[in-house]
Design a protein around this nucleic acid. Structure first.
Length: 878
RNA sequence: GGAAGGUUAGCUCAGUUGGGAGAGCAUCUGCCUUACAAGCAGAGGGUCAUAGGUUCGAGCCCUAUACUUUCCACCA
């Protein structure tokens, strides 16, 4: 007896079991067969900060679809999994945890002890994330799992750092950077998010030395005036030309500062005079460099005013100081006016604290030489963005990016391999740890700072494959085939991987960047913790199954677009799984023969027209699915599978096959079953990349040849299987059934009320061979194919294939029927008129392709036929 | 300020080289038709944002406008 599927689709019953089996059998390891072409993806490593969210679920689903497809298509497919240490984000989490549970700060523990805690956290959450990936069905090669701070990745980081340093592409310098006063670290430009905030524009006058005059400057940040070292005007501004070179006395401070001329000033904005604070504004810093101005830093790391230059404001928070200083300016008669003004404020992307631009000693990567090849490789098309429009996002950024500040004043991360000798002042950058100065032999101390977390992620495509060693994996799987990620991290990650790959490997890290959008909630809002509108993928999996979640994420959405996630979407997905489950159950419960018998391909001569029809349609589906997946149109491919499965296979083919199947033991029954097994199996295979669990569960229950569907061959288009004529025949029959059903429905004739059907058609053969099907599906008692039918008490239904008469005098409302026929005739006439007009159009006939014209002619002929049968039907009604 | 999207059925969205507009959900009608009510059979519902243009032909290509989303830059 064949194994039966459970009556109800209950994914919880089999998903975990199946996944475990896949892992036990090691199916996800790439096939070592050298003859197979390579296909590889490295996972965008999820942060070890917490758990998987919907964005991950989407990202991993898309990757898994690609990898599973390629694996089945005969590639040696590798998907490298792993996690990211996520420096600042993880450190914040652990610190928060420490604060809440133990009331301690990281300083209370000290660097070493604190790092132990972070590793504990990493072990706990890293494992959890991996388990979540498995729940989702991700077919990663777990033997190759990596972590951005594992030994190999750390080695790669050091190698890269030292190489870049030796080439002069990494340098240490005193520059203006973005500083987060809460995280107490520098941030890169990419890590600053701008948000519009209401503020004020304070107009303050600075007295000009030696006169009674003032210069009025306008500022949104009066507290920084403690660090002003000049006031600038435009060199061609006639109002102020005579003042350039004079000095001012800085109010509240009393310091003498020069009036300078610089083109950076916009004459028409504000008063045309700008206070220059090189230590606390990036533009002012540049102006200061040009004019050799002193840099006066007035804040501490926590954004309180420092004691060195703060005077009475020392120790105050920057905002408190602002308030007090404005009051003092007003009291001193320096404040001219205050205007409300909305302005963009930079905030820390991790904690949302307002970032303070300030000067600081930091490490930087020099971008210009690195950006060049990274731009070239994209412009030349060697790396393609999918969809293409994201190319511009990338190139714009790459063309305009500044040097990358890579040092972070954190503890969690790759410690910068620079060693300072306090004895002789030498700094040594080294791949290996050193304890003494190579120059003077005195003990050295290592740089306290760690690297930006994205520094190590940038190396991910090759560090995970063993670089800097020359490994087999690198030789075979680098460059990777495709990178799948959201548009939100093109700058953070994609760009940096590209220039890193070009610089260190001399080769692009991937050929295609497949970009997807954000998963939003049902109202279209971004999912976020503060809104509490996040949907937990694990809960969805628990309730609906991983397959339904994956389906919902892969369907009804164009590449690169954001998508909404809603109950109705996941329910529709689950319903589809249920449909497939039940159809499979039906097929299985009728398979009484031996597997070998059922797996035999039926001979062409045994196939009925509906068999050929479904096989031909399956063949078309196979073609389109292969093509669409190749084009990254994953949603279209899935939509095609969906409608084939539901609308053609379930609604039509299975119904059509029933009469043969139920004829137990007959050769016709066996043929039908063979076709059912073949078509269902191919559906399962085509669907497997999207819904791996249910397809495996059913595949195992069906007669099958491969040990697992995971390693079975993906269906291929087969030219031999396009049965053109039979397809048309079945379409005619279906059109006929649909028309009959519609008419019966309109007339409220239930299926239980059987009636004779008389069919007048030129496709006699077709109707005779499918009479049984027609009978069953059109709820007829008998189907009579005839040359002509002549009865007044019948409903005539004009179809593409001919006219069907239902003698149902007792249920016909003649009046209604006449009205309906008249309306239909009118509609039909207007179609005729439209096409005739089109065909009479000289331009159309001479310029349109022949096939299009031919199509129009065929349509016209059909409509003309219909007109005749409608006329006849009306005539009969009197 | 720059850039890229979006505007298609009541809702959410597809629509791959231009050749008579689709799905899911919702609504309405009729069905427990022996795989499936998480279902079956039907029905209604759209001047494809607006205005021009190219074309024999435009949801699709071009121009402009309106509204909208996002990203980047930023004048202190």
């Amino acid at each position: 007896m064949r194994k039966e599927l459970a009556k109800n689709y209950a994914p919880r019953e089999f998903e975990d079991r199946i996944y475990k089996n896949w892992c036990d059998k090691n199916y996800f390891a790439p096939d070592p067969d050298k003859k197979k072409p390579a296909f590889s993806i490295v996972i965008p490593p999820p942060n070890v900060t917490g758990q998987l969210h919907m964005g991950h679920a989407l990202d991993e689903t898309l990757q898994d679809i690609l990898v599973r497809t390629k694996r089945m298509q005969g590639y040696s497919a590798l998907w490298v999994p792993g996690t990211d240490h996520a420096g600042i984000a993880t450190q914040i989490k652990v610190e928060e945890n420490l604060r809440v549970n133990e009331g301690l700060t990281r300083y209370d523990l000290g660097r070493e002890k604190f790092l132990e805690r972070v590793w504990d956290w990493k072990n706990q959450y890293g494992t959890r994330i991996i388990n979540q990936l498995k729940k989702l069905g991700a077919s990663c090669d777990w033997n190759r799992e990596r972590f951005t701070m594992d030994e190999g990745c750390s080695k790669a980081v050091r190698e890269v750092f030292v190489n870049l340093y030796n080439k002069g592409l990494i340098y240490r310098g005193y520059r203006i950077i973005n500083w987060c006063p809460r995280c107490l670290t520098a941030l890169s430009d990419a890590e600053v998010e701008y948000a519009e905030q209401p503020g004020s524009f304070w107009h303050v006058r600075y007295p000009i030395d030696g006169t009674d005059e003032y210069l009025t400057v306008a500022t949104t940040r009066p507290e920084t005036m403690l660090g002003d070292t000049a006031v600038a005007v435009h060199p061609e501004d006639e109002r102020y030309a005579h003042l350039v070179g004079k000095t001012l006395t800085l109010p509240l401070v009393g310091r003498k500062i020069p009036i300078i001329a610089d083109e950076y000033v916009e004459r028409d904005f504000g008063t045309g005079c700008v206070k220059i604070t090189p230590a606390h504004d990036p533009n002012d810093f540049e102006v200061g460099k040009r004019h050799n101005l002193e840099i006066i830093k007035v804040m501490n790391d926590d954004a309180t005013i420092n004691s060195e230059y703060g005077g009475k404001y020392a120790g105050m928070d920057r905002y408190e100081a602002r308030k007090v200083m404005v009051a003092d300016l007003e009291a001193g008669g320096f404040l001219v006016k205050v205007e409300p003004c909305a302005h963009n404020v930079g905030t820390c992307y991790r904690c949302k604290t307002t970032v303070e631009p300030m000067t600081s000693d930091q490490w930087f990567v020099k971008m210009e030489p690195l950006a060049k090849p990274a731009l070239e490789v994209v412009k030349s098309g060697e790396i393609k963005f999918e969809p293409e429009r994201f190319t511009k996002t990338y190139t714009n950024w790459m063309e305009n990016c500044h040097d990358w500040c890579i040092s972070r004043q954190l503890w969690w991360g790759h410690r910068i391999p620079a060693f300072y000798c306090d004895e002789c002042g030498e700094m040594t950058v080294s791949k290996e740890d050193i304890s003494v100065c190579p120059k003077c032999g005195a003990p050295v101390r290592q740089e306290e700072d760690v690297l930006d977390t994205w520094f190590s992620s940038a190396l991910w495509p090759f560090s995970t494959m063993g670089w800097p060693e020359k490994t087999e994996d690198l030789a075979r799987y680098y460059p990777t085939s495709v990178l799948v990620t959201g548009y939100d991290i093109i700058f953070f990650w994609v760009a940096r991987m590209i220039f890193s790959g070009m610089e260190h490997m001399g080769e692009k890290p991937f050929s295609t960047v497949f970009i997807h959008g954000l998963v939003r909630d049902a109202q279209g809002r971004k999912m976020s913790k503060s809104l509490g509108n996040g949907i937990d993928p694990l809960k969805v999996i628990d309730e609906y199954g991983a397959d339904a979640l994956r389906f919902a994420l892969a369907t009804g959405n164009a590449p690169g677009n954001d998508m909404r996630f809603s109950d109705e979407k996941i329910e529709a997905a689950r319903n589809f799984a249920n449909k497939l489950w039940n159809a499979s159950r039906f097929v299985l419960m009728n398979l009484t023969e031996e597997d070998e018998e059922l797996l035999k391909a039926p001979k062409d001569s045994e196939l009925t027209i509906e068999d050929k029809w479904i096989l031909a349609r399956l063949n078309e589906l196979t073609k389109s699915v292969n093509a669409n997946i190749d084009n990254y149109e994953l949603g279209i491919a899935l939509g095609d599978i969906y409608s084939f499965t539901w609308d053609l296979f379930c609604d039509w083919y299975i119904e059509m096959a029933k009469s043969r199947i139920f004829d137990t033991g007959s050769p016709a029954a066996l043929t039908a079953k063979r076709v059912l097994v073949k078509v269902l199996t191919d559906i399962l295979k085509l669907l497997h990349p999207y819904m791996p669990f249910i397809t495996e569960e059913i595949y195992q229950a069906l007669p099958h040849t491969d040990e697992s569907i995971v390693i079975s061959a993906f269906p291929k288009y087969d030219e031999k299987l396009s049965y053109k004529t039979e397809e048309e025949d079945v379409d005619r029959i279906i059109g006929c059934i649909v028309a009959i059903r519609a008419r019966r429905s309109e007339m409220n004739v239930p299926p239980s009320k059987k009636a004779k059907l008389f069919v007048v058609t030129k496709y006699e053969e077709t109707f005779k061979t499918t009479a049984k099907i027609l009978e069953k599906l059109a709820s007829a008692s008998e189907v009579i194919v005839t040359d002509s039918y002549d009865s007044d008490d019948a409903v005539a239904i004009a179809t593409d294939a001919g006219t069907v008469y239902i003698p149902l005098a007792e249920v016909i409302d003649f009046e209604k029927e006449r009205a309906r026929l008249t309306a239909e005739a009118k509609k039909n006439d207007s179609e005729i008129e439209r096409i005739e007009k089109k065909l009479a159009n000289e331009g159309f006939v001479s310029k349109a392709p022949a096939a299009v014209i031919e199509g129009e002619r065929a349509k016209l002929a059909k409509y003309l036929e219909t007109r005749e049968s409608l006329k006849a039907a009306l005539a009969k009604l009197g």
